Simulated assay, not measured.
Amino acid sequence: MIVSHNELVTAVNKAFLGLRRCCGEADVIANMVADLQLVGLNGVGHFNKAVPFLANEKDSPVTLVKPTQDKIEVDMGGASLVCHLPSVIDYAVEQMVKVKILTIHVSNCHNRWLAYSELVKLSAKGLACKAQWSNGSDRRKTLYVLNKGCVFPELYQSDERSEDHVSEAYVNVHDMTIELSVSNFAFPSPSILGYQQIDSASLRNTYVNAWREGIQVDDAEWKKLKQAATVFLVENSEVSAKGAGELVV
């Protein structure tokens, strides 16, 4: 089905607020989902998959250490990264004043596709970004490269798990490695890696069409999101009928 950007953001916002969490900002997370959906990468589906984690995980800050000047290690303790990645990225950008390249290793996290939105913002800050992870469900490897001045990244994804190409970054399927640099990254050859490429032009075309014609969302995923959003609604009562800003005596 086709939905507007406002409908999508509102639904995600309500669904997240309904979880009544302390960590995470509903408006930021809603835009993380919308940005991924706008380029055709199933942001709604990834958020729906994140909801059970968000509902059951420990609602507390994550552990962050900086063992060296050019490395940050974050242990999310099995949490979805949507609540914590924006703060981690903000901290990392501040550290880039001292170094030319910085590696962020995020361990024990879920829903890494939803990092897309936060990573895209780095280009406007004059930084290049490379991220890689292995999907926990099917072990397909994903590589994300966004250089300075670019609006849309180049994405590479393996057809299936290949032991020949498993690197240290993929030892744990619930980890993610993000590299920030003041210099651009070289683009790998998909054929050499054995990856399929989703190029930036394709993402851009989907994005433009979504703003022009509406955002395409799978019917079943939209229904699931709307059901999650209704959790935030409350039944009419004598108090609620008086209005949110009215003085009750």
Rank of each mutant, 00 (worst) to 15 (best):
Y144S: 02
Y144M: 00
Y144Q: 01
Y144F: 09
V145A: 08
V145R: 08
L146M: 09
N147H: 05
K148V: 00
G149D: 03
G149S: 04
G149A: 03
V151M: 11
V151F: 12
V151D: 13
F152E: 02
F152S: 02
P153T: 02
E154V: 03
E154N: 14
E154S: 12
E154A: 10
L155N: 02
L155E: 00
Y156F: 12
Y156V: 00
Q157I: 09
S158H: 13
S158I: 02
D159N: 10
D159R: 14
E160L: 08
E160R: 15
R161H: 09
R161C: 03
S162Y: 08
S162T: 01
D164W: 12
H165D: 07
H165P: 00
H165N: 09
V166L: 13
V166Y: 13
S167I: 07
E168S: 09
A169F: 09
A169G: 02
Y170H: 09
V171G: 02
V171R: 15
V171S: 07
V171Y: 12
N172D: 13
H174N: 08
D175Y: 00
D175L: 00
T177I: 08
I178L: 07
I178R: 05
L180K: 06
L180N: 03
S181R: 12
V182K: 15
V182I: 09
S183C: 14
S183H: 15
N184L: 09
N184T: 11
F185H: 14
